[in-house]
Amino acid sequence: MYYHHPLAWHDTKLFQVVAGMGGAASRFTQRRVERDLDNKVVEALRERVRTRKKTFKSVDSITMRLPSFKDGLRDIRDIFDHYDGDSNGTIDKEELRSCLRQLQVQMSEKGVDSVHRYCDIDNRKGIQFQEFVVLLCLMYLLFGPNVTRQVSEFESVKLNYVFDELIDAFLFFNKEGGGKMRRKDVTQRMNETSHQERTPSHITTQLFKDMDLDRNGKVNLKEFLFAMIRWAGLETDEDDSNETSP
């Protein structure tokens, strides 16, 4: 005969609560990882603002560079395919560890896991090609030109130029290097150099929405880079024909 222990229901509820706490702890850890990496990026951006001259003077000057961004980044596809050892279109954690070792980026195992989560922008449990481009750009910002030399000695100058311009494009909107772009920043920068009609608010709103992937009202560098790479039209395994462009 089945005996139902009077505490069984409470045990089940306790298990559910503990499981829920575990999930909450995991989300908290991930948010902390994001904050830590965002803070490192902000430090690098502020140093860049302090030491470099501004490149872009208008949104149009950024938009006109999109074809050159695409041309400069196209060769990264071969690099991605090289590190995608199982050719499944995704860089997993072990493949990322191999990649960072070859790029001579010194990072702990925990650090690699953190970067993998951070650059998995669409939450598909791995780094796809566009996210890999974002990863390389962030590593270039944080660790310097040696990263691109390890990617390709022959292509390093071109990659440095493109990465510099992509980062400077973000700083056009985020002038102080604080690391968070808001919709008002986009609206202000799109209109301050225009001598004609102001850009309609629905256009600036949609443009910001396309960049604000986590819908928190702020766009950090990785979100901006991801949007710029899509707008440049880099080839992916998916059909990007319906993506919005600025």
Results as ranks from 00 to 15, higher is better:
residue 155 E to V: 08
residue 199 T to I: 15
residue 89 G to Y: 02
residue 195 H to S: 10
residue 220 N to K: 10
residue 25 A to W: 07
residue 134 V to I: 10
residue 195 H to T: 10
residue 115 V to R: 00
residue 181 M to K: 05
residue 221 L to Q: 05
residue 66 L to P: 03
residue 232 A to F: 08
residue 163 F to L: 05
residue 59 V to H: 03
residue 207 L to K: 06
residue 177 G to D: 02
residue 219 V to T: 09
residue 60 D to K: 09
residue 177 G to V: 04
residue 87 S to Q: 15
residue 50 R to C: 12
residue 99 C to T: 11
residue 218 K to I: 11
residue 81 D to V: 07
residue 195 H to C: 09
residue 14 L to A: 05
residue 164 D to Q: 01
residue 126 G to Y: 00
residue 86 D to T: 02
residue 169 A to C: 06
residue 80 F to H: 03
residue 223 E to V: 01
residue 213 L to W: 00
residue 186 V to G: 01
residue 72 G to F: 03
residue 227 A to K: 12
residue 187 T to Q: 14
residue 92 D to H: 09
residue 194 S to T: 10
residue 164 D to S: 04
residue 52 R to I: 03
residue 114 S to G: 07
residue 141 L to I: 04
residue 52 R to T: 15
residue 115 V to D: 00
residue 246 P to M: 07
residue 67 P to F: 03
residue 16 Q to N: 10
residue 154 F to R: 10
residue 25 A to M: 12
residue 32 R to F: 13
residue 241 S to R: 12
residue 142 L to T: 06
residue 23 G to F: 12
residue 116 H to R: 14
residue 75 D to V: 04
residue 201 S to F: 07
residue 192 E to G: 03
residue 152 S to W: 05
residue 87 S to M: 11
residue 170 F to C: 03
residue 4 H to G: 01
residue 62 I to A: 04
residue 237 D to C: 02
residue 71 D to F: 05
residue 111 G to N: 04
residue 84 D to M: 05
residue 197 E to P: 00
residue 191 N to A: 08
residue 78 D to M: 10
residue 244 T to L: 09
residue 120 D to T: 00
residue 19 A to L: 15
residue 128 Q to W: 04
residue 26 S to G: 11
residue 195 H to M: 11
residue 41 V to E: 04
residue 32 R to H: 12
residue 45 L to G: 01
residue 86 D to N: 14
residue 77 R to H: 06
residue 244 T to Y: 15
residue 146 N to L: 12
residue 119 C to Q: 06
residue 205 T to R: 10
residue 154 F to E: 13
residue 50 R to Y: 09
residue 49 V to R: 02
residue 118 Y to H: 04
residue 195 H to D: 13
residue 118 Y to M: 05
residue 221 L to I: 08
residue 119 C to G: 03
residue 45 L to E: 03
residue 88 N to S: 08
residue 146 N to Q: 14
residue 201 S to H: 09
residue 43 E to G: 08
residue 239 D to P: 02
residue 222 K to H: 13
residue 58 S to W: 06
residue 23 G to C: 09
residue 117 R to T: 10
residue 210 D to Q: 12
residue 161 Y to E: 11
residue 75 D to S: 14
residue 91 I to H: 00
residue 11 D to K: 11
residue 126 G to T: 06
residue 47 E to C: 13
residue 187 T to A: 14
residue 220 N to C: 15
residue 150 Q to C: 08
residue 58 S to N: 05
residue 14 L to W: 10
residue 173 F to P: 07
residue 119 C to Y: 05
residue 146 N to G: 13
residue 114 S to Q: 09
residue 87 S to Y: 08
residue 86 D to I: 02
residue 215 R to P: 01
residue 211 M to W: 06
residue 114 S to F: 03
residue 65 R to Q: 12
residue 86 D to C: 01
residue 19 A to P: 01
residue 2 Y to T: 12
residue 203 I to M: 09
residue 105 V to R: 02
residue 23 G to D: 14
residue 63 T to A: 12
residue 12 T to Y: 07
residue 241 S to G: 13
residue 35 R to A: 15
residue 33 V to E: 07
residue 220 N to P: 09
residue 222 K to F: 13
residue 238 E to H: 10
residue 215 R to I: 12
residue 81 D to F: 01
residue 1 M to W: 13
residue 49 V to M: 03
residue 79 I to W: 00
residue 34 E to P: 00
residue 127 I to M: 06
residue 16 Q to G: 02
residue 133 V to T: 06
residue 200 P to G: 05
residue 66 L to T: 04
residue 75 D to Q: 11
residue 15 F to A: 09
residue 180 K to L: 12
residue 134 V to E: 03
